[in-house]
Nucleic acid binder design. Structure first.
Length: 302
DNA sequence: AAACGCAGCAACCGCCTCCCA
DNA sequence: ATGGGAGGCGGTTGCTGCGTT
């Protein structure tokens, strides 16, 4: 039993939009705002499906669209984000102001795919096409006493680093609160700068690495009754696999920080929090963090 | 000049998720 | 708890314009 169609197809236009239809849609949205797509066509006097109106507006008519050729910086950013997120075009688009998911998807399929193939990189996996023995994603866990301090305790690091040469990178930090374990999990996300890597050597250019997701996990502030707790990295990661972790934004204590703020998109599209430190990040939806819940599995590489 | 092939992109389709009654 | 409506998303299609033969 299929779902009912979103509109009466026999009474709707299809195909390319006319100038008049565009004008009607723009006029209606300017005076009534976005939303209620199902009822919009009738209200705007359009013989179109509501979905079609939404798509036309979002992909073509929105005033904040950038349009025009993608810059080299945008290319590299798309590649980085795709290596991390896969075909999550809407998430990728969210990091490129003025670009739409459809535009990025088309651009990927027509330009970037070919570009990567020419570089000898599999666009699906972001690994060298011919080399199966290098650049594999490695997952390692280490416990660092060097990071220990009376306040933050030892740190467990789960590294998803690819085996690429050392490269200039930027590190972002994210604290996530696991309420069940009553501990904070600290995420260190290294984002190697491909443009800088290009200046190193052609070989390293070929290996322009993926986003390096390095997760560091550490008990936050050892509470008095926790100070003698010993938690091996393996047991900790096992627990990670079995718990949905609450983001810091859901917990007001502990000085946790919103992922959006941490990535420098505070109060941007992905971040609705009002303070970077009081951790009110409800609604943040990047990397599956919607509603303040991080499903650990959502961080798996495709 | 015409035919053909290909690339680019706008638009469609169907499935999924979220929200609300 | 559940079912349906609405919006969102990703894959795919098909039209158009350009280059080549």
């Amino acid at each position: 039993m299929g779902r009912s169609p979103c509109c009466e197809k026999s009474h709707t236009n299809k195909g390319a939009w006319t100038k008049e239809e565009d004008d009607r849609l723009i006029t209606h949205i300017k005076s009534h705002g976005e939303g209620c797509w199902r009822s919009l066509p009738k209200a705007a006097g359009l013989l179109r499906c509501g979905k079609s109106c939404r798509l036309r507006w979002i992909n073509y008519l929105r005033p904040d669209l950038k349009r025009g050729n993608f810059t080299e910086d945008e290319d590299e950013l798309i590649i980085k984000l795709h290596s991390l997120l896969g075909n999550k075009w809407s998430l990728i688009a969210g990091r490129l102001p003025g670009r739409t998911d459809n535009e990025i998807k088309n651009y990927w399929n027509t330009h970037i795919r070919r570009k990567l193939i020419n570089r000898g990189i599999d666009p699906a996996t972001h690994r060298p096409i011919t080399d199966h023995h290098t650049n594999n994603i490695t997952t390692t866990t280490t416990t660092s006493a060097a990071n220990s301090s009376p306040e933050i305790g030892p740190t467990t690091t789960i590294s998803f680093a690819s085996t690429t040469p050392t490269a200039p990178s930027t590190t972002h930090h994210l604290m996530i609160k696991n309420e069940e374990l009553d501990q904070d999990i600290k995420f260190h996300i290294n984002t190697p700068d491909c443009r800088k890597i290009k200046n190193i050597s052609p070989e390293n250019q070929e290996r322009c690495p993926d986003l390096n997701l390095e997760l560091r996990i550490g008990p936050p502030h050892l509470h008095h009754n926790q100070s003698d707790m010993v938690l091996s990295s393996s047991s900790y990661t096992q627990q990670l696999h079995h718990h949905k972790l609450m983001t810091g934004g859901m917990n007001s204590g502990g000085g946790t920080i919103c992922f959006g703020c941490s990535l420098g998109v505070k109060n941007g599209k992905e971040c609705s929090c009002t303070s970077s430190l009081n951790g009110n990040s409800n609604g943040y939806d990047f990397l599956g963090l919607k509603n303040g819940v991080l499903d650990y599995r959502s961080l798996e590489m495709k």
